[in-house]
């Protein structure tokens, strides 16, 4: 079985994928993950997730090339400023 290992570096931080461990069962995965990802005090906590339990999404349909739904190249900063000026609600630096 392959277990994907997620590591939390400090309390309150999000868990991030750290790597994987191949083990015959969960008990071996526990022993091996401790040694591989925790023995230098580098982890606050670990999550061991059987790879089979992960629902992955890797394919995306965009048949109609709906570019207008994307924001790349669209500078919202300038447009927002213009809109605010038109509406007279430009945030003042003093307030």
């Amino acid at each position: 079985m392959v277990f994907e290992i997620f590591r939390q570096e400090k309390k309150g931080q999000p868990f991030a994928h750290a790597g994987s461990v191949e083990a015959p069962d969960a008990a071996f995965a526990d022993a091996w993950a401790r040694e591989q990802y925790g023995r230098r005090g580098e982890s606050e906590a670990l999550w061991l997730v059987p790879r089979a339990s992960i629902h992955a999404i890797t394919e995306w349909a965009d048949e109609f090339d709906l570019k207008y739904r994307r924001v790349d190249g669209y500078s919202i900063k300038t447009r927002l400023k213009e809109a605010r000026e038109r509406a007279g609600t430009t945030p003042s630096l003093d307030s």
């Binding site: 461990v21 191949e22 083990a23 071996f28 091996w32 040694e35 591989q36 023995r39």
Partner: peptide, 12 residues
């Protein structure tokens, strides 16, 4: 025998 065991055994 396996990479994982190698790390664990060396650590022990």
């Amino acid at each position: 025998p396996t990479l994982e065991e190698d790390v664990a055994f060396s650590s022990i």
